[in-house]
Design a protein around this nucleic acid. Sequence first.
DNA 1: CACATCTGATTGACGTGTCAATCATGTACC
DNA 2: GGTACATGATTGACACGTCAATCAGATGTG
Lengths: 159, 159
Amino acid sequence: MTNSTPPRSRQSPTADELRIWRGFIETAQALNGRLSSRLHEESALSPGDYAVLLALSEADGRRLRSSELADAVGWERSRLSHHIRRMEGRDLIRRDDCAVDYRGAEVVLTDHGAQAFRSASVPHLRAVRELFVDALTPEQLDQVEQFTAALRTRLDSPT
Amino acid sequence: MTNSTPPRSRQSPTADELRIWRGFIETAQALNGRLSSRLHEESALSPGDYAVLLALSEADGRRLRSSELADAVGWERSRLSHHIRRMEGRDLIRRDDCAVDYRGAEVVLTDHGAQAFRSASVPHLRAVRELFVDALTPEQLDQVEQFTAALRTRLDSPT
DNA sequence: CACATCTGATTGACGTGTCAATCATGTACC
DNA sequence: GGTACATGATTGACACGTCAATCAGATGTG
């Protein structure tokens, strides 16, 4: 007698599995959305702005080559280029030519940008605590770490 | 002797907590991104297209009032309106006037839209299994359900 | 009926994200 | 030195998302 059902791993998820999946992804998005709203209300910064300002704040001389900044925030170059242009218009950052490679550009945090980041940082981190850390038990936090690691292993393996 | 430190819940997260937070949110986004890419490669549908087609597929007569559709996918009206316009241009849906309320509009799944959804559905669900369900143990799936519930409770309580 | 008001839905402006094309400078090799 | 190619970065076109304004048709009240 042959086995006529395909291997379980090739089939669609069950209704329960799908419910958990949807809960996961919708919760993550809702959490993100709430934090973004707060950030915007309190500091007039988008999550993208915050990521760029954070990376520059931590950089030597508060400046980074464009490509290093792209790596730091995990964006594609063109996305960074568009975002940088908009941020420059709001005087959050400035673009300098790079002295050692005339193809390159350096992105520099302005004083205004540094100030904006400082003002945004504390309330943002407090919101992360309120909406994420404090909502979970220490055991649950451990579990989150475990399974995000598991998911990332799967994502990184060639599909 | 007075306690000079603020309550723990008002402080910023610790480095460990922040690492777990970042891992969580970045993993969720990476997972979403991967599924979106696959959906787009295999079916030329965006996640938004898929959500709309799914809701219409499950609706009586494969049609919904605009506002019901907005509720079903959890979007704001204007977002839906913009998306619907683009989808209409690709013949995935059609807009009809509503007979009982001349302000209203009905969104109807076209045959082509229904076909596109059917083709997209199976590979998409298989991807959810591969990248999410199969990456986790049954215990971890349970844990995910628990803590997403906890997070949502926090999100829903007035902040 | 006349008027104000509410409601369903669309629109316009603008910020955001992706992809492919482009441009200019650096580098290697003859 | 000159040609080919690689690399850093920008641009343009277009899809997507949010907000505020708008518009048309429904509804309530005198």
